[in-house]
Design a protein around this nucleic acid. Structure first.
Lengths: 123, 123
DNA sequence: AGTGCCGGTTACTTCAAGGGAACCGGCTGT
DNA sequence: ACAGCCGGTTCCCTTGAAGTAACCGGCACT
């Protein structure tokens, strides 16, 4: 058995790139990214597929994504008001790694569920 | 401007594969995956690079990953006790999409931080 | 007899994300 | 005059993840 290198104490400092990308972890961002994939959407439109989200949380999430440059927000001076959210180039670039992750999930979902069931038996 | 398809109301049911993979979102799983990349590790060894994690949370996270089939836990009947955690084939397969995501983060970190600063100015 | 190591467990606390319900301004339509 | 639409905001509450501190059993070493 070969010797394995010891793990360094600062593998996971803030700038190391091993942490998951900012905010992919929160509950709605990834799904919002997917909602905006095909083109700009309005606030109310986004609530349809995300029908469990409250307006408060939707605003929060969109603001955070805007702050990180993933989406742009465009308000048109009309009545009734119209606001459109769209992916920026940066947000669009994130779709590619996201797709990989989604593909992994689809490919292994059944396997994971099986393991879980086994594990539950052994308790 | 071309017409964009409306978003369906059931885009994100539990089985759709658009949700982020199980538990990549929690605080430590992704980093643990990275710690185990080079080979099996012992409990105490894992605490070194993750020096901010408490034994309780480390146990919880490892158990959850075990439950989902990402890691295996092997206890040797020695003294002092020795326990080794290792990636399963499933866990190892997850490294690939993770790498894509990490690469994205490294590539765009500066850009995001720049956008954040701009955004902070405008407030 | 006391100390330390290993891999945890237990009980308690903290904290931020998320959820729910109500409300808002400005205009339109009836 | 009143209701409705849009894109929110505000206040309050719940929940669950995470953190903190103390402790455990079994053996070995001194």
């Amino acid at each position: 058995m070969s010797r394995i290198e010891p793990l360094s104490a600062d593998m996971f400092d803030a700038d190391c790139g091993h942490r998951m990308p900012f905010r992919v972890g929160d509950k709605w961002s990834a799904m919002l990214l997917r909602c905006l994939e095909a083109g700009p959407r309005r606030f109310t439109e986004l609530k349809v597929p995300l029908h469990r989200v409250s307006p408060k949380v939707l605003t929060e999430t969109l603001r955070a994504m805007e702050r990180d440059g993933w989406v742009s927000r465009t308000a048109y001076d009309e009545n009734p008001p119209r606001v459109e959210y769209a992916l920026t180039a940066l947000g669009r670039a994130l779709l590619d790694p996201m797709d990989h992750l989604c593909a992994w999930t689809r490919a292994h979902r059944a396997e994971i569920l099986g393991v879980r069931e086994e594990y539950a038996q052994g308790e």
